[in-house]
Nucleic acid binder design. Structure first.
Length: 501
RNA sequence: GGCCCUAUCGUCUAAUGGUUAGGACAGAGCCUUUUCAAGGCUUAAAUCAGAGUUCGAUUCUCUGUAGGGUCACCA
């Protein structure tokens, strides 16, 4: 109640931010970053975050995009108060459902004499443009503005009449004080021939209606900001706070990262097994930095630390190697049950795992979780471990035939039998209650040290895993359990005996 | 071409009118480990260039250079 009163009487308007994608396909890193910053800022200020769909270009619209965008944001944990599925007091959050509003504002501008129908054909416009290009000057429509305006009947595009072209100055929270010459100002289209508004017009009306206080967007909009300002002026509204985000660059730093350059669908990262908390953390750090040496953040801490003042001016490259490293950091922070469940899910989705018939019980997985955690950065690394059969020793019997052959060729078989026999006896003596890595090592180590570590431990590794790459034999014994461990050693010994004959 | 923006290790970045210019990823080396991985330690690596202001610039100013954005009935 008190906070409600405070809110009503507070002079400072409540922070409202929005993410306003066009439904033209999947969401990539840049879009997700913009959405995240807007969301973080809203959360930090106890404000409102809106998801608005800017579907005014019917040509470029890709079916299913809205669902895809929603799915992506949800995965990242970004929640909208109003969105395509949740209309607000201002109505729909889908621009194609707000056409009346735009028309209404268009009429206001017409009434003020600040909007007029464009009499030219696209061919005529094109020739103007070619001319300007040939003369190496920027194309300005207003140089061709008709003397007298017809009445707009909707059959032609409606243009904004820039009343007073002049040098414009404005403030950007990130870039500071900016300005641009009068050539940045022109008569732009408000409503297209097809009845849909342009971005330039629609976003301003919507931001106004939705009470948006902070506009965050990438830096390609700096150049058109003077146009927006002239429209705010004509509409007699106070512009929101402008926050320009730095570009995310391609690996070679020569260009903004675009879909063509391999900018991935964010959900691809999900498929590869990145944690959403990694993506959020990492995305936040491309273009912003708290100014401390801390890099790994959970979400609440990120909200706490996030500051518009610390957003960068210059662009940066999205470094997937570092992303992998960070994912491991977040994997380590994950509660064990969550990690186990995720590993189980990933493994059970794998066809090969089904073929191998591994028992993916929580008990087994919990036991081997630390070893898995040591060996992966991303869940998709599990797929590799399966292909390489690295995980086999957790679930299947070693291939003793292959083993015995190797022993015959390369190792002193008698010595191997002697060592394995000792190890077997030593381990048998370890009580069930002490079947832990440390105690297992304790039981074998003095002997191994005396006899030659490699001589003793290498056969043991083979006996247990059937491979020459595996976690250390003590960990392995711990994971496999006393019964399986002894069984495998026994079988290995049998193979040795057979080979010795 | 006009207008506009940007500039610290290979990459992400910290700092500030005075630091040996700090950290992280990747790299190299060492330790640990039966091997691989993981982990630990160590190491190499940067203020775009030139002027100016200043006792002192990476930081402030100017010029240049390079890169980027924009000049749509796309957003």
């Amino acid at each position: 109640m008190i906070s409600r009163i405070k809110e009503l009487f507070s002079k400072k308007p409540k922070v409202v931010t929005r993410f306003a994608p066009s439904p033209t396909g999947f969401m990539h890193i840049g879009g997700a970053r913009t959405a995240l910053y807007a969301y973080l800022w809203a959360l930090k200020n106890n404000g409102t975050f809106i998801l608005r769909i800017e579907d005014t270009d019917t040509e470029r619209e890709v079916e299913g995009s809205i669902e895809h965008i929603k799915k992506t944001l949800s995965w990242l944990g970004i929640e909208w108060k109003y969105g395509p599925d949740k209309p607000g007091p201002f109505g729909s959050c889908i621009q194609s459902e707000r056409l009346d509003t735009y028309r209404e504002y268009a009429q206001k501008l017409i009434a003020k004499g600040l909007a007029y129908p464009d009499p030219y054909t696209s061919e005529e416009l094109e020739s103007f443009r070619t001319m300007a290009d040939a003369e190496k000057r920027p194309f300005l429509y207003r140089k061709h503005r008709p003397e007298t305006f017809e009445k707009w009947d909707g059959s032609k595009a409606l243009r904004f009449k820039v009343a007073n072209p002049r040098r414009m100055k404005w403030h950007d929270e990130v870039r500071g004080d900016l300005e641009a010459g009068e050539e940045a100002l022109d008569d732009f289209i408000l409503i297209k021939k097809d009845g849909y508004p342009t971005y330039n017009f629609a976003h301003i009306i919507d931001d106004l209606m939705m009470g948006v206080t902070h506009v965050m967007r990438a830096d390609e909009f700096i150049s058109s900001t003077p146009k927006f300002l002239s429209l705010y002026e004509a509409l007699e509204i106070t512009p929101p706070v402008l926050v320009t985000l730095p570009p995310i660059l391609r690996n070679d730093k020569t260009k903004k990262l675009g879909k063509r350059d391999g900018a991935k669908d964010i959900l691809e990262y999900k498929k590869e097994g990145f944690l959403p908390e990694t993506m959020v953390n990492f995305l936040a750090l491309v273009g912003w930095n708290p100014g401390t040496e801390r890099e790994v953040f959970n979400f609440p801490d990120l909200v706490k630390a996030f500051e518009i003042a610390k957003i960068h001016k210059a662009g940066g490259v999205f470094n997937e190697e570092k992303l992998r490293w960070m994912n491991k950091e977040h994997l380590k922070l994950l509660p064990k049950e969550k990690f186990v469940e995720a590993v189980r899910e990933r493994l059970s989705e794998n066809e090969r795992v089904k073929d191998l018939g591994w028992k993916l019980t929580p008990e087994v997985l919990t036991r081997i979780a630390p070893v898995i955690l040591d060996r992966i950065e991303v869940y998709s690394d599990l797929d590799l471990m399966i292909v390489d059969r690295d995980l086999d020793y957790y679930f299947t019997e070693p291939n003793y035939d292959a083993l015995s052959l190797r022993w015959k060729d390369e190792v002193d078989l008698k010595g191997t039998i002697k060592h394995l026999t000792f190890v077997k006896d030593a381990l048998t003596a370890v009580p069930d209650s002490k079947w832990r890595e440390g105690d297992i090592k304790e039981a074998i180590w003095p002997y191994a040290d005396a006899e030659g570590r490699g001589q003793v431990l290498w056969p043991l590794r083979y006996a247990l895993s059937g491979k020459d790459k595996s976690p250390n034999p003590f960990t392995l014994s711990d994971i496999l359990g006393k019964e399986t461990t002894l069984k495998r050693i026994t079988e290995a010994l049998k193979k040795c005996a057979d080979a010795n004959v």
